[in-house]
Amino acid sequence: MGMTTISRQVDRPPPDTGDDDLWDALRRQEPEALGELFTRYAAAVHAYAVRHTGSYAYADDAVQATFVTAWKQFSRTDVGPLQHGTAKPWLLAIARNELRNSVRSRRRLAQFLLRQPAPLDHPDHSEAVAARVDSEQHIQAVRAALSALPAHERETVELVYWAELTLAEAAAVLGVAEGTVKARLFRARRRLPALLEEHR
């Protein structure tokens, strides 16, 4: 499979800037703080969504929906103090729910599109689109190998290894104990050599 060179995204906040001040501003419902939250974590949410779905189109939608929902949570209620010193796990938890909620509507959309006539325009063959297609193929191949894991282990691998969350942060996203995250990783890693063998 042809792979285009792809640069790794920086998906962490600037090293000397914590999220505490930003979080306080969000709790005060300052709109500019939402923009800053987006600047810091849009890439992380996007990367998580791309790896979770294998689709850039779905991921683009998920990024927007995640930040809209995040703001709504601050607008509706006091979400309490920042946990773990970073807003990233909190945002990924929202993204995870947005992706789950969108599955059913996506199925209906897919069924609708199947009934439509073919588009008149030819697809765009620009370099950017080609790179995305290559990237999607690569991610889908990786996900195919990972798909032999039970969903809860797969999700744990995505959050800890791919989204680079700590065990405590991943536990917060998944709503389970930290020990459970460890156990899932242990089980997943035990199965991974066999999985790699299968997909070699």
């Binding site: 996007h46 791309v50 683009d60 991610i139 791919w162």
Partner: peptide
């Protein structure tokens, strides 16, 4: 293929 290494992802389009 190393499943514990994050698959590379294209940048979020800056304009978007």
């Amino acid at each position: 293929m190393n499943l514990t290494t994050p698959p590379p992802v294209e940048h979020l389009d800056p304009g978007y």
